[in-house]
Design a binder for these strands. Structure first.
Length: 754
DNA sequence: GGGGGCTATGGGGGG
DNA sequence: CATAGCCCCC
């Protein structure tokens, strides 16, 4: 048996690859050859006689799955195609298509994206006559999402005193009812949101303990999970369903790095990795600590930064690449200058270090920061590509055509109907739509059924009937023809193409181009095939196409290989590496994000994010910040990020002037308001009004009514911490997130009532 | 029912 | 700053 591939591995990597049976945990530092271990392990399983289709490898991004498959096939050849490798969401979606009827769903169920979910929630809030200010759509959706990811059904939610109390506190006591309606509306529409793809799979396994669970336990003899630190409770629960049972071999290999856990906001819990041993006592652990990616200064900087996080699995990341450049820190006056200086440095690196464009990345905390860099790169004639933000599939014209395609496959899809029932215009306005919708609610029928059952005036009635016929016709074609044939037909006869053709503006033109590009993409889908497992490989139907794109992001766009500079958020950069990396916007309120500042866990997660950013760089790492920048149309002044202070001088390029001492900054930073040039508008309150007399911290105690300059009147709920680090939890009536935690040392609070 | 212009509001990371 | 929602007028 040819095992030469093992010689590409160091000792620990080899052990991790060859220890096949039972629970295995691989703690893999950045650049430590994690993907190599994962792929060689799969290759080793196959060479050891395990059938490829018995192996299930779960990742978080399609890109990671694709890369893994490519690399396995380099070792074991074509059999790699038979391995079940894909994202949690896409693999689970495939299983759910097969088993849909067992949980009362059609096998052609629609996947609602975030926009669809929000549209539905907005409507529910409106229908229930709730105040949309208290019931902020994004928060409601986040809360529903988090309930699902913790296996809390609407019923359980309503019974959960703690959750209900929080909702009452935030003045949205009816959240459970919105959740309930949301779930039933999704079900009636034959739709699942992203969380449902996980939740419904769990439900499937839970409610069909015999045949179904057995089937998948047998099918997947070996499980591998990449980036395990990013799994949430629900994902872990599913994994346990598959491998933790009486008589199981517990062949589960998890790979991850607690220091790179950056998805707590979508429910990931670091406890999964920290407590893994409790669930699998026979666990064998391997730690990959040698970093093959970066030079020493970069590795050391990363180590220094992450040391500030308390909770972590001990490990010592090291490198033998001791030559290298120190880190550069660039301070700019404005975001504009930051853009120019980064572009300047890129030119310099290209000349001096011969770095090519595709080895350069600009990483930022938020997608909105890309603009300045784009401007300067364009000006300097440097090719670049922006990832993230609006993806191709989220463009209006693309979503419109996709809505028709979705309807051809699943006419119950209410969000799709609402999107296109009057586009192109066919005289079906809001009032008719409302009538149909109300009728549907009264009779507990779907919108689609209500289209023909609801009594309407003769004109709209006719239009509704015609629309249904149109969709039915599309549906009939969809079962006979392949995806491309149906889609081109639908694009024409829905009137979408004509509608865009009649728009002669530049924008209209580019929209038409996008539609053509979408159709080209569908053509490509017909001509090539790339499936995630043994199932459905040859399926070129519209349904199959829709399912393949529902879970794509623009990170998955393979069409544009080229020599360009990469611009992306740090989150998207996870798993990638570049010779030269710029981490920009290193300022308080940005990185760390202002939303994270209130809790230690929040800051820690930002720090892990910074750690991820640093460790993307192989050779050149540049950190930049600006003193002022435009944000939301206003100039704001931010202090340099605290994370900059956490890297010691000896790692920094000495030609760069060092800023003021850390402790001097510390004060202003936490307070958030400091000296501001006259005549410049800022979002901060600069000087208190004359009738405002702040109390000193020790005078504030629980139960008091106080006044805050920004948040108004509030009631002090509790005080914790000591001396200088006393923090008050205060409930402010007049603001959106009424409960705030405020550091007394810096807060200006006036006592209103003792 | 449709379209244009105005105001208010919110603004993070992603499958 | 961008978008959603609203009002007004056709």
């Amino acid at each position: 048996m040819p095992l030469d591939y093992l010689k590409d591995l160091n000792d620990v990597q080899q052990q991790a690859v060859t220890h096949l049976d039972g629970p295995v945990m691989v703690i893999a530092g950045p650049g430590s050859g994690k993907t190599r271990v994962l792929t060689y392990r799969i290759a080793h399983l196959i060479t050891s006689g395990i059938y490829p289709e018995q192996i299930l490898a779960l990742t978080f991004t399609n890109k990671a799955a694709r890369e893994m498959k490519e690399r396995i096939s380099r070792v074991v050849g074509d059999q790699a195609r038979r391995v079940w490798a894909g994202t949690f969401h896409s693999i689970f979606a495939r299983i759910l298509r097969v088993e849909a009827d067992r949980i009362g769903y059609p096998s052609n169920f629609t996947i609602y994206d975030t926009e669809d979910s929000k549209a539905l929630i907005t409507r529910i809030i409106k229908d229930m006559h709730l105040d949309k200010n208290n019931y902020n759509v994004s928060s409601v959706r986040a809360r529903i999402s988090s309930a699902k990811c913790n296996l809390i059904t609407p019923k359980l939610y309503a019974k959960d005193e703690e959750l209900m109390q929080i909702d009452r506190f935030y003045r949205r006591p009816m959240l459970y009812a919105i959740y309930d309606r949301y779930v039933s509306q999704c079900k009636m529409a034959g739709a699942m949101d992203f969380d449902d793809l996980l939740y419904k799979l769990f439900e499937l396994l839970q409610t069909n303990p015999d045949e179904v669970v057995d089937k998948y336990r047998r099918r997947f003899a070996y499980l591998l999970v990449d980036e395990f630190q990013d799994t949430n409770y629900l994902q872990y629960a599913i994994l346990k369903k598959l491998v933790k049972y009486e008589g199981s071999n517990e062949n589960l290999c998890i790979v991850g790095d607690d220091a790179q856990s950056i998805y707590a906001f979508r429910g990931a819990t670091i406890d999964n990795i920290l407590n893994f041993r409790k669930d699998f006592p026979n666990l064998v652990t391997f730690k990959l600590e040698q970093n093959y990616r970066s030079t020493q200064f970069i590795v050391e900087a990363a180590n220094e930064v992450i040391r500030y996080n308390k909770k972590q699995i001990q490990k010592k990341i090291w490198t033998d690449q001791i030559d290298g450049n120190k880190l550069k820190v660039i301070k700019s006056i404005s975001d504009n200058e930051e853009g120019r200086r980064v572009a300047d440095l890129i030119v310099e690196y290209k000349n001096r270090h011969h770095v090519s464009n595709n080895e350069i990345a600009i990483l930022y905390r938020t997608n909105a920061q890309s603009r300045v860099f784009e401007e300067y790169l364009r000006r300097y004639n440097l090719p670049y590509k922006v990832f993230g933000g609006l993806s191709f599939y989220q463009r209006k014209e693309v979503k419109d055509l996709i809505a028709y395609l979705r309807l051809a496959v699943n006419p119950q899809d209410e969000e799709a109907i609402r999107r296109v029932i009057n586009y192109p215009k066919r005289g079906m306005g809001n009032s008719s739509v409302d009538k149909i919708s109300q009728f549907a609610a009264e009779k507990t029928i779907t919108f689609w059924e209500s289209l023909v059952q609801c009594p309407l005036p003769s004109r709209p009635e006719k239009i509704a009937k015609q629309f249904r016929q149109l969709i039915e016709e599309f549906g009939a074609r969809a079962v006979e023809k392949n995806a491309y044939e149906v889609a081109s037909y639908i694009a024409q006869s829905s009137g979408l193409i004509d509608a865009l053709k009649s728009d002669n503006s530049l924008e209209g033109l580019s929209r038409l181009e996008n539609l053509t590009a979408l159709l080209d993409g569908i053509k490509e889908f017909i001509d090539y095939d790339e499936a995630e497992g043994p199932l459905l490989t040859e399926d070129k139907s519209l349904a199959s196409y829709l399912q393949s794109i529902a879970l794509l992001t623009d990170l998955d766009d393979e069409t544009s290989f080229g020599d360009y500079i990469t611009l992306m958020s740090v989150h998207s950069a996870k798993g990638l590496e570049f010779d030269a990396v710029f981490i920009v916007g290193l300022e308080e309120n940005i990185f760390p994000s202002f939303q994270s500042l209130e809790t230690q866990d929040g800051i820690d997660e930002e720090r892990r994010l910074f750690y991820v950013a640093i460790t993307r760089a192989r050779k050149l790492l540049t950190l930049t910040y600006a003193n002022s920048r435009y944000r939301f149309g206003k100039v704001v002044y931010n202090e340099p990020s605290r994370f900059l202070d956490e890297i010691s001088e000896k790692l920094l390029d000495s030609t760069v002037p060092r800023r003021a001492s850390a402790s001097a900054n510390h004060r202003a930073r936490i307070q958030g308001s400091f000296r501001v040039p006259k005549g410049v508008e800022t979002t901060q309150t600069v000087a208190p009004p004359v009738d405002f007399t702040p109390a000193s911290p020790h005078q504030i105690h629980a139960g008091m009514k106080v006044k805050h300059l920004k948040f108004g009147i509030g009631k002090v709920i509790s005080i914790d911490g000591y001396n200088d680090s006393k923090v008050a939890t205060i409930f402010f009536n007049e603001v959106n997130n009424p409960q705030r935690r405020i550091m007394l040392k810096f807060a200006k609070l006036q006592i209103v009532e003792d």
